[in-house]
Structure formats: structure tokens, C-alpha cells
């Protein structure tokens, strides 16, 4: 059987020249509003950049600040937090708690040397498929202009020494333990490679 190419080419990271830099953005969506908005954008055939990868939470209030920092550490160039408009929370008022955490995170990432624009908050109701799509496009362009984040994280791997099979085995689930860092892992090197 012939090798099958991936259906959708994934965005190139880091090594590509800045002009074609495709940022990777992790978007956290609320089950009741923004996730439905993204769904609506789909049913309405509204396009938005594939750079954003959405994770569904039940509520923006579920957003643990750890998730945002984890996303940066894992190589995301930006994080998009979305939730119901103020006053429209499905759980009465939890989006206000998300807002407080967002403000806290803004200050935290600035202190860590990450540009504030790499963390964005968008309110989108279930009806606002087009608006969400436009906001995703806007955030993507803003992050594209900022360039790659290259946040040096300990668990980044040296891509040149990356042994796919070993890593796959380690992370594939049957190993059980944490993925073993491949030999020669050098955070600085990895950062350059990205």
C-alpha cells in the first residue's frame, strides 16, 4: 500500500522563514457559547485559520491557569481564551471568574517575558460564529506578526536527535511512565531548532 500523505498539511513551525510563519494557537472554548459558535461557523461554512486548535471545556471558569502556561511550554505561540459574554454565562457568573484569572495571567505572562498579545480573551455567544471566526483570524494575524514564541521549556526535545519510534513508544500509553527525554536533549538547541 502506498504511503498516504496527511490530508491536511500541518502548519510549519519555527524553521520556516518569518514570512510564512504559521503560529500555533491553543483556544479554550466554553461548551455553551464559543464551542457552539465554532460549530456554527462550521455549519455556516464560515472559514477561520486552521492555526487555532480548540479545546472544549464546560465553562471558561474551568480554565486552570496551568493550562495556559502548559500550552506555552508545549510550544503554543499564543492562547485564546473564549467564553460567554458577561451576564450570559450558562453557569450564572463563572465567566467573571475566568475574567479574573485572565487578568492574573496577563500579569503573570508579562512577568515571564511573554508579550501580552499572546494571551487573548474573546467573548462569543453561540450565535456568533462569524464573529468568533473573525476574532480567530485577527488573533492569528497578531501572533503571526509577533513571530514564534520559542519559550524554552524543559520538556522540549532536540529535533535532530529525535527518535520517533522511541518517543512514540514512550508516549503511546503502554509505557505508563512519563515520556523519557531522548538522549542529547538540550533545551537551548531545541529552541533554536524550532
Amino acid at each position: 500500500m502506498s504511503a498516504q500523505a496527511p490530508l491536511a498539511p500541518a502548519p510549519a513551525q519555527g524553521t520556516a522563514p518569518a514570512a510564512t510563519f504559521e503560529p500555533v494557537i491553543i483556544g479554550f472554548t466554553c461548551n455553551w457559547c464559543s464551542y457552539r459558535a465554532a460549530d456554527l461557523a462550521g455549519t455556516a461554512r464560515t472559514k477561520y485559520p486552521p492555526n487555532v486548535r480548540l479545546i472544549r471545556l464546560m465553562c471558561s471558569g474551568r480554565l486552570d491557569p496551568t493550562f495556559v502556561l502548559k500550552a506555552y511550554a508545549e510550544g503554543a505561540d499564543a492562547v485564546l481564551v473564549t467564553g460567554c459574554h458577561p451576564g450570559e454565562c450558562h453557569y450564572i457568573e463563572q465567566n467573571y471568574k475566568a475574567l479574573r484569572r485572565f487578568r492574573l495571567l496577563q500579569r503573570t505572562i508579562e512577568a515571564l517575558g511573554i508579550e501580552p498579545a499572546r494571551l487573548q480573551l474573546v467573548w462569543a455567544s453561540a450565535a456568533e460564529g462569524v464573529r468568533l471566526a473573525n476574532e480567530i483570524a485577527r488573533v492569528t494575524e497578531e501572533v503571526r506578526a509577533l513571530g514564534p514564541l520559542n519559550w524554552p521549556a524543559g520538556n522540549m526535545v532536540d529535533l535532530d536527535a529525535f527518535n520517533l519510534d522511541a518517543a512514540w513508544e514512550a508516549t503511546g500509553g503502554d509505557a505508563g511512565g512519563p515520556p523519557a527525554a531522548p538522549d542529547g536533549a538540550n533545551p537551548e538547541h531545541a529552541a533554536v531548532a524550532r
Partner: peptide, 19 residues
Amino acid sequence: VLAQIEGLLRVGADGLALR
């Protein structure tokens, strides 16, 4: 959720996210 983040950002041998 953390596993989802890791999965979405997994980087393959060529620097491409494998998805």
C-alpha cells in the same frame, strides 16, 4: 485537558505537528 494540550502540540521529526 493537559493531555489534550500535549496532543495538539506534539511535534514530529520534521518539526511538524503530527496531529
